[in-house]
Write a protein that binds this DNA or RNA. Structure first.
Lengths: 214, 214
DNA sequence: AACGCTACCAAGCAAGCGCTTGGTATTCAA
DNA sequence: TTGAATACCAAGCGCTTGCTTGGTAGCGTT
């Protein structure tokens, strides 16, 4: 029974996270996590998520990957550029992940539920480290950097809007519903702890789905 | 004493914001906005909301009220204490405002709708300057300060939980529903602009209500 | 007139910040 | 064997930060 479920899960999701990352790296859309630049981006994603952007110093970041603070600027031109690059790569990865989650969903209802669960997994599991930064640290970006990230983000949001529209949610137009969902889901970072034996991510996804698409 | 407070509370149900503030100042629960300390707290609420806590310097704050930065520490012991005091006073004011909004609501449905609209007004109108700080800058507080603010916040959240419970919302227990609502509502600060001729606050309240309590 | 209290100024300190500079070790292709 | 490229170190610069110190002007009370 346990094995059958596991086989089914792996059969439905064509790629593991590592395989998905590998494919995106080969396409040149993501930085190789093994390269110095990639290790910096991953460490930055973790630190910015844990402590916030302005409370993370370049010395913190350098210590995390075992180099001196000045060496960071051999790979990036400024601290803000690091945040910008982190956000862009996080968005690209989350998009690919959600698109692959949508492929194994049949009905419009299932598609919306898959979106919700995919975003919750991005926020809470190690699935997409740094995803919550996209909302929480948005104001730390300059306007120029915001535009760069929005260019990537449009694709991700389009998947959401399609899912909301076809699922016929109440509450007016899809854009408003999505924005309310962004807030509700991203804020779970502050209170939902999937490790504690209480709510699981699928259960929480069910509740959110139940509220937004009854 | 208990009765006197009750009478005072009922008397303030139809008060304007200024009158409500005045009553709370007289009870000693709020700092007089005309005093130097009060002017600092109001300016801090505006600045922390606009630019964020860590991007606001004590020099910014001092300039806003027309004094030098060092003089701030004649009124507060640290920058973090200012944030803590702002949060406490914002919570006290928002509680009083919401309680008075609940009194003119009849059915459980109306009570929940009144809660939603009251919080949206707190976030977007000048009703409660600094309200969004409560969510956005929570992590900027030390654990000791967080406990202080939570002491005030419990009362506010209890009103919400009662309203959600009696309105029989879907989506499981009231605590989870409230947390999803906190996220959805507080995030509106980033996208909803009541000045633009589009959605109004009552209309947005309707949509949120429609989603969370169909 | 003397006192104490509040509110503030003027000046600056120590620490921390993002970032720069000049140089070194290693690698690898020509 | 040379030369360019990559990845990093060592040292520190210039600036900003939250906060301190010592002093003063104005005020109401006694």
């Amino acid at each position: 029974m346990q094995e059958a479920a596991q086989v089914l899960e792996e059969a439905q999701s064509d790629l593991s996270p590592q395989q998905l990352i590998g494919a995106l790296v080969k396409k040149g859309e993501l930085t190789d996590p093994g390269s110095p630049r990639g290790r910096l981006l991953n460490a930055a994603a973790r630190l910015f998520e844990q402590k916030g952007f302005s409370r993370t110093t370049v010395r913190d970041l350098a210590a995390e990957v075992g180099i001196l603070s000045g060496s960071i600027f051999h790979h990036f031109s400024s601290k803000e550029q690091i945040l910008c690059e982190v956000m862009k790569e996080v968005t690209i990865f989350a998009s690919a992940r959600m698109r692959s989650a949508m492929e194994s969903a049949g009905s419009p209802q299932e598609r919306l539920r898959a979106c919700i669960q995919s975003e919750l997994e991005a926020i809470h599991e190690q699935a997409v480290p740094g995803f919550s930064i996209l909302v929480m640290e948005w104001r730390s970006l300059s306007e120029a950097s915001q535009k760069e990230v929005l260019l990537q983000r449009d694709e991700y949001e389009q998947i959401w809007l399609d899912a909301i529209n076809t699922a016929q949610c109440p509450g007016g137009d899809a854009a408003v519903v999505r924005r309310l969902l962004v807030g509700a889901l991203s804020h779970t970072y502050s209170w939902f702890k999937p490790r504690e034996k209480g709510l699981t991510i699928p259960e929480l996804s069910d509740r959110v789905f139940q509220i937004f698409a009854p």
